[in-house]
């Protein structure tokens, strides 16, 4: 599903430095992955999962620009380097695959500089926002003789998923005392990792003053895609794990009407569209204890004090436990 027709970077919302570190003098093999290409978000090293999450979000927030810095000092200055994004970007005849996006191409060195900065954007790396491209590589490749015969230098594997999971269905809220139980039928998508319940007052205000953190991209920037305009981070009321069929929202006020939705969220923090809405008004309930008392029950329910225990049977039980354990030890020898 199309999230947004993001163009190339407009505003510098994030600055990511991609630093390729190598002792490459020719096309000697670089260590794959770790410590060769380092991706940072405003100076902070991103783990593999964080890279994917970040990129997945960034590509669908218009204007998320990237600054990719490549350390090319080890490459032969007579050749040509390129930064490409895609899957299997070098064909069998050692050309750049048409399916890949060339983000930069040029001489490895210019003057005294050992790094090259590539201005690009999240969506240039990951492709447009439509569909799913669950795996791709950000690859540094090299053409040693400037004859369009490319070889891989190193690559950074990335995973991207911009497809929404299907929305939960059959949402039904049943009110309790200061709470509501939300039952729903889960999304059919296999990559759903959790569900979040959104709730508001009847007036559309956030129901909780201190809501749980949203697990989805709540930036609100959808580049004109308003299909999920109802989703607000401050509306999160509860969270349920994948496989759940119900969740209880607590912290609500009695006698106030609330609206509830459920959103499915996949492993890349893509939220589904809102489910159907269900309304409920919490009210006082009669639990077993209240029912018991209204039926004339007179037991003391103020705590764990032993009532009517001649001689304190609790103490006797404790003594007997100790006795049995000590005798048992003797017997076991």
């Amino acid at each position: 599903m199309l999230w947004c027709p993001c163009g190339t970077g407009v505003a510098l919302a994030h600055r990511v430095r991609l630093i390729a570190v190598s002792s490459l003098l020719t096309l000697a093999p670089w260590a794959a992955g770790a410590d060769v290409i380092v991706l940072k978000d405003e100076g902070r090293l991103l783990s593999a999962s964080e890279r994917e999450t970040w990129l997945n979000r960034a590509r669908c927030v218009c204007g998320t620009a990237l600054s990719v810095e490549l350390d090319l000092s080890a490459l032969d200055s007579r050749g040509r380097a390129a930064l490409v994004a895609g899957k299997s970007c070098i064909t069998s005849d050692r050309r750049i695959s048409d399916s890949c996006r060339t983000l930069w191409s040029g001489a490895p060195a210019s003057g005294d500089s050992t790094t090259h900065t590539v201005q690009t954007s999240a969506d240039e790396i990951a492709g447009d926002c439509s569909g799913v491209d669950s795996s791709l590589d950000l690859a540094l490749i090299f053409d040693a003789s400037d004859d369009d015969q490319w070889s891989a230098v190193t690559s950074l594997p990335l995973g991207v998923d911009t497809e929404r999971p299907a929305a939960p269905t059959g949402v039904k809220a049943v009110a309790g005392e200061g709470l509501a139980e939300i039952a729903f039928s889960g999304s059919d998508d296999t990559d759903v990792s959790r569900y979040q319940v959104l709730c508001t007052t009847a007036a559309g205000e956030a129901a909780l003053s201190d809501p749980p953190a949203a697990s989805f991209d709540a930036s609100g920037d959808r580049c004109g895609d308003t299909s999920d305009e109802g989703i607000r981070a401050t509306w999160v009321c509860a969270e349920a794990s994948e496989g759940s069929a119900s969740v209880t929202v607590t912290g609500l006020r009695d006698h106030q009407s609330y609206r509830f939705w459920v959103v499915a969220i996949d492993g890349h923090q893509n939220p589904s569209l809102l489910s159907n809405v269900s309304t409920a008004t919490p009210a006082p309930e009669e639990d077993l204890w209240e029912r018991y008392q209204r039926s004339g029950g007179t037991a003391d329910g103020s705590g764990c004090s032993s009532v009517g225990a001649p001689g304190g049977s609790g103490v006797i039980l404790l003594v007997l436990t100790g006795l049995l354990v000590s005798i048992g030890r003797r017997g076991g020898r």
Partner: peptide, 21 residues
Amino acid sequence: AHGIWLIGKGGGAEAASGSST
């Protein structure tokens, strides 16, 4: 014998508790 009991209400709160011997 000694029976400790707890009665809970919605949301996990405790409504009453006690014990019977």
